[in-house]
Design a binder for these strands. Structure first.
Length: 414
RNA sequence: GCGACUGUAGCUCAGUUGGUUAGAGCGCUGGUUUGUGGUACCGGAGGCCGUGGGUUCGAGACCCAUCAGUCGCCCCA
């Protein structure tokens, strides 16, 4: 026999108690907000063919190169636990031919998986809520999606702790010109570049832009700016987004160095980060105009965002769930039928109740205390014989005999 | 993938330069109270000292590996 305790898999935690209530509360809040803006729910599998993510996120992105939870299934197909939600939904759009009737507005929530070192605000299994809007690529959509994020965070009462940053990285043609330009700029300044950024220069030069290294930051002051490489249309579009957001009272800062790590982004990118730790994003997203096409559909532009529930949870102030059950205490097993009958009636009236099968008053009342009960209903010989219950107020200690009609009358006002 | 710190009871943690039978508080449990809780007092249970190897007459302590946690970096929600 092996008595060793078994732990959960690294970076994957059990969620219960206070944490669970808090997370559920965030999800409930999210659903309430997005439903009011007529987004509809979609659940895609938590596992996809690896190709879905490789094609969409980009095969040089860090997420794909080192963070994918991939393995071969029994028929030797490479499958991957989803590292994010967008790719699967875009795939579902194509798979189910949902592209006939646009716009489509979807929301989702659920677990995501990334194989990385656990630390503050980062787990191997974590949970996200998110929305996706597939439409025609107008600047209205960008604002629509950002304002919904804004109201979501506002409802959670954490707007004062976050900062909205937006940027545009243009369409791929303009972006490629820009990338070539910064490549040569940084190549000229190679020796001043941090070692991390030297690697980025080969793999993904765009990422040097949001380097936090002070040396790199210095270099960035003189670096080419993306806006000089964008077409008039791209710039106008960005201006339209900014002025529409301002006109509806959503404040933001423009961050020309905000680039995101997933290949599918184009044009608008945005992030809500913590005010006091601006590299810590709690909600982030952007536009992905080529993603659906990349996954075998037609050219359907989309935009969306996702927020990490665990990251939000740490910001939301404690929610007190004052769950206070009525505890039903039989003193002997033979009163169970009678107690079940009362419990059933409470259920039908929507009263939170629980039967305690200790058959020991002292233990039962102790349990009642520990579980935040305010009222105990005791049934013993006297109560049973006279069709009564003892109604005990656990705060005051007062106790009285009631018949069932009196009991439910009293509970109505308790 | 790289780095730092940590791992002793359900929880929070003591445990001296390596030296008998590993401790405390909280929690749990029994009793004082045979149908009455919260308080008090008295008792009890509960530990392969994360795991595996090594050094030593002797390891919870030292060394190595490994797993896990926390926190940085990369990256990301």
């Amino acid at each position: 026999m092996n008595n060793k305790k078994i732990a959960s898999v690294r970076g994957m935690h059990d969620i219960f108690g206070e944490d669970h209530y808090k997370q559920q509360d965030i999800i409930d809040n999210f659903i309430k907000v997005v439903s009011l803006f007529n987004f509809s729910p979609i659940n895609t599998p938590i596992m996809e063919h690896s190709e879905v993510f490789i094609r969409s996120l980009g095969n040089v992105s860090d997420v794909v190169m080192k963070e994918m939870y991939s393995f071969l299934d029994k028929s030797k197909d490479s499958v991957t636990l989803r590292p994010e939600g967008t790719a699967g939904i875009a795939r579902a759009l194509v798979s189910n031919g949902l592209t006939q009737n646009l716009p489509q507005r979807y929301f989702y929530h659920g677990p995501m998986f990334r194989y990385e070192r656990p630390q503050q605000g980062r787990l191997r299994q974590f949970h996200q809520v998110g929305i996706e809007l597939f439409g025609k690529g107008s600047y209205f959509e960008d604002c629509e999606v950002i304002r919904i994020a804004y109201f979501f965070l506002k409802n959670l009462n954490i707007l004062d702790k976050v900062l909205l940053k937006i940027n545009t990285i243009g369409k791929s043609s303009s972006r490629n010109n820009f990338i070539n330009e910064i490549k040569s700029y940084f190549n000229l300044n190679k020796k001043k570049l941090s070692s991390d950024s030297l690697k980025r220069l080969e793999k993904n030069p765009l990422r040097i832009l949001d380097s936090k290294d002070p040396q790199d930051q210095d270099l960035l002051k003189e670096a080419p700016i993306i806006y000089n490489f964008l077409s008039k249309d791209e710039l106008d579009n960005f201006e339209n987004i900014k002025s529409l957001l301002s006109s509806i009272g959503i404040s933001f800062i423009v961050d020309p160095f905000l680039v995101r790590g997933l290949d599918y982004y184009s044009d608008t990118t945005f992030e809500f980060t913590l005010k006091e730790n601006q590299k810590f994003a709690i909600l982030a997203g952007g536009r992905y105009n080529d993603l659906v096409k990349e996954l075998g559909g037609s050219q359907i532009p989309g935009i969306g965002w996702a927020a990490g529930i665990e990251r939000l949870k740490d910001l939301v102030v404690k929610i007190f769930k004052n769950i206070s059950p009525v505890l039903l205490i039989p003193t002997e097993k033979k009163y169970l039928t009678y107690i079940f009958d009362i419990s059933n009636k409470m259920f039908l009236k929507g009263i939170n109740n629980q039967i305690i099968d200790f058959y020991n008053l002292k233990k039962s009342l102790k349990y009642a205390n520990k579980n935040n009960a305010k009222i105990a209903i005791i049934v013993g010989e006297h109560e049973f014989n006279n069709f009564l219950v003892s109604y005990k107020n656990l705060d005051s200690g007062e106790q009285s005999y009631l018949d069932q009609e009196e009991l439910f009358n009293k509970l109505r006002y308790a």
